[in-house]
């Protein structure tokens, strides 16, 4: 196959990536401002900017600062976390169908929430956050303990554990309508109302893990050449694998804890990012950092405007948006794996 596109020299490739990323971040900022303005009480973009730069305490500004801006920030954090976690799991497992939930992170969180609801313990948003985080971490630890010797074992263990945990959770929920009711609200991934939970710790964790992912990306580049080559290039494969798993757990665990299970973002974002990054994990991570938040913000806007009254949970919108996007990407480019 001969491509007709012009082939840039390496330095101009880097410049091209930087230009696209800067454009992407500018677009992201614009969408964030629009997102903050949209809702039951519409706020014009200029007022949004004024509220962020020079707050004066008016009603509109309170809406912006107390509700909308935290929610947009939450969408950005969750989107970035899920997008980058998707890049990490797909790169680690060399499987384009892998998504962060495959390691049992979200079923672990869901299982813990079910148990919590059954025991009647999770009353506050803070408690929800804690329980979901513990569940996500516990499940991944178990998966890692059993499957750490090879990426394929990890994925299989994750799938098996997920099946068991969701089976038990489903059983518990069917036996108790009360538990079912409580779980239901959490299980539909949504940003609505969640901006009122204590978000500093999970957002901080996501931020640190994103920095970690960027630092790790060059080692993942080496790891993508296969174990023998990676090791003789001086990459410590065992350590890279462990670090990657920890980062996936923190990113996907924190995102699931604050927003509930939102499965599609971690699958679709790496696919679209890969078309832009062209084989380089560092750039791939950079693109996921822009595309994840962008998809979440758009989905969140959609969740607020699709129904005349009330909201559609954001996880449903990401499914609606992400499904066709994935089909489009696969039809146009083929299902390349990393």
């Amino acid at each position: 196959m001969i491509s007709t596109e012009t082939r840039p020299a390496p330095t101009s490739t880097a410049r091209w990536h930087v230009a696209v990323l800067v454009g992407g971040f500018a677009l992201l900022a614009a969408v964030a401002v629009v997102s903050i303005g949209i809702g039951a009480q519409a706020v014009p973009p200029m007022d949004v900017l004024r509220a962020l730069v020079a707050p004066d305490g008016s009603a509109n500004q309170l809406i912006v600062l107390e509700v909308r801006a935290p929610r947009a920030l939450l969408a950005i954090g969750v989107g970035a976390a899920l997008g980058v976690a998707g890049v990490l799991i797909q790169t680690l497992s060399r499987n384009a169908l892998a998504e962060p939930g495959i390691l049992g992170v979200s079923t672990g969180a869901g299982f813990a929430m079910t148990i919590g609801a059954a025991l009647g313990g999770v009353a506050s948003p803070a408690a929800e956050l804690l329980v979901a985080t513990l569940g996500a971490a516990g499940a991944t630890l178990l998966v890692y303990a059993v499957g750490r010797t090879a990426p394929l074992r990890l994925v299989l263990t994750g799938v098996a554990l997920s099946a068991v945990l969701s089976g038990i959770s489903l059983g518990l929920r069917l036996m108790s309508p009360d538990v079912f009711d409580k779980y239901r609200f959490w299980s539909v991934g949504s940003l609505a109302g969640r901006e009122q939970a204590p978000l500093l710790v999970p957002m901080l964790a996501i931020g640190l893990a994103l920095v970690g992912a960027l630092l790790l990306s060059r080692s993942l580049n080496a790891a993508a050449l296969g174990e023998a080559v990676a090791r003789t290039l001086g990459a410590n494969i065992a350590r890279v694998r462990l670090a990657t798993l920890v980062l996936i757990t923190v990113l996907a665990g924190a995102a699931t804890a604050v927003a509930g299970p939102i499965l599609f973002v971690g699958l679709i974002v790496p696919h679209v990012a890969r078309r832009l990054a062209r084989g380089s994990v560092p750039w791939l991570t950079g693109y996921a950092l822009v595309l994840g938040p962008l998809l979440m913000l758009l989905a969140d806007i959609g969740s607020r405007v699709l129904l005349p009254t009330g909201e559609v949970p954001v996880a449903i919108v990401t499914g609606f948006l992400g499904g066709p996007m994935l089909i489009w990407a696969v039809r146009k480019y083929g299902a390349g794996s990393l």
């Binding site: 390496p10 580049n221 080496a222 993508a224 050449l225 296969g226 023998a228 080559v229 290039l233 890969r274 062209r278 084989g279 380089s280 390349g336 794996s337 990393l338």
Partner: peptide
């Protein structure tokens, strides 16, 4: 050795 799907020669060498 197995190269990732969409990698170009220069990228491979750079690694």
């Amino acid at each position: 050795p197995l190269a990732p799907d969409d990698i170009k020669v220069r990228q491979l060498v750079a690694r």
